[in-house]
Design a protein around this nucleic acid. Structure first.
Length: 284
DNA sequence: CACCATGTTAGGAG
DNA sequence: ACTCCTAACATGGT
């Protein structure tokens, strides 16, 4: 459950269960899930994971925080960091879930499990959750929305709008789905150069980002077991993501799909014209 | 069986 | 030197 809206949903879910409660015990089912820092690389596994996590037992949780796709679970001293990767989630279970990596026994509730089949997610123990949470990330796309001119500055210099939106150092929290959705809402072609996009394009993009993030967050909040991207096309909650070939919801033209930054990118050739809305001069 | 997937990043190509 | 893209990571679902 990976992009910003799902992570924010996880933060709220965790907040209700941990804030103000004491960490009673930890269950380390898969030590390799705990890294020296938030890193998707198994090579960064923390050799003293059990010890360092165990040292947190007895401390009390403060309010969980989030920037972009990262979570911090600060305690009254030190804390935990979490990244859900592609398939990570938190669930409350008495017995370990199939891919339960680490269980947190908090207060008198069922253990809270970090469950992650694909193992791109991870946890890390840190002395300074605030610093670790923010390190290397741009402003949070939801909590620190940029005005159009600031958004233009944040994205400037990247080769394409798509690449810029996926760059967590420019803007934190946008993943492939949210990028595809926002660019379609804004009517901007994913492969346009950020420096060539006029001010009104950034005005639309700023609004579009808020719109898709809030809409997806509302879906996540309403649906405890939200199927993030269902194989079932009828249940796909997105406007264009996962709908290549289907008619554009705005103009009816068939949605096209191509690869950008190695990710599938769906767009409408009619609503998201290549440049400035007119003919492409460079190709002449 | 082959191919696809919501994230991140090392390494190679240019 | 710097920038950008590809492949790889591990696993499950179609």
């Amino acid at each position: 459950m990976p992009e910003l809206p799902e992570v924010e949903h996880a933060r709220r879910w965790l907040a209700r269960r941990v804030e103000g409660h004491v960490l009673r015990a930890v269950i380390v089912a898969d030590p390799s899930a705990i890294r020296t820092r938030l890193s998707s690389r198994p090579a960064d596994a923390d050799p003293s994971a059990g010890e360092r996590l165990g040292a947190l037992v007895g401390r009390r949780f403060l309010a969980p925080r989030r920037i972009g796709k990262r979570l911090a679970l600060p305690l009254d001293a030190g804390g935990l960091l979490a990244h859900l990767g592609m398939t990570g989630r938190f669930v409350a279970r008495t017995s370990p879930p199939t891919h339960g990596r680490v269980g947190l026994v908090v207060g008198d509730g069922a253990p809270l499990w970090f469950d992650d089949p694909r193992r791109f997610g991870c946890l890390a123990v840190t002395d300074d959750p605030d610093a670790a949470l923010a390190e290397g990330l741009g402003p949070d796309a939801l909590d620190a929305p940029l005005l159009p001119d600031a958004l233009a500055r944040a994205l400037a210099g990247a080769p394409t709008l798509k690449a810029a939106l996926l760059d967590q150092a420019r803007l934190a929290g946008i993943g492939n789905i949210q990028a595809v959705e926002a660019l379609w809402i804004a009517g901007l072609a994913p492969d346009r150069r950020p420096n060539d996009v006029p001010a009104d394009g950034y005005a639309r993009l700023a609004t579009a980002l808020q719109e898709t993030l809030r809409r997806t967050l509302a879906l996540a909040a309403a649906d405890e077991e939200l199927v993030y991207v269902s194989s079932d096309r009828a249940r796909n909650p997105f406007q264009v993501y996962g709908r290549a070939g289907a008619p554009c919801p705005r103009c009816g033209a068939p949605l096209s799909s191509n690869k950008l930054q190695g990710r599938t990118t769906v767009s409408c050739p009619a609503c998201q014209p290549p440049a400035g809305g007119g003919a492409d001069r460079r190709s002449r």
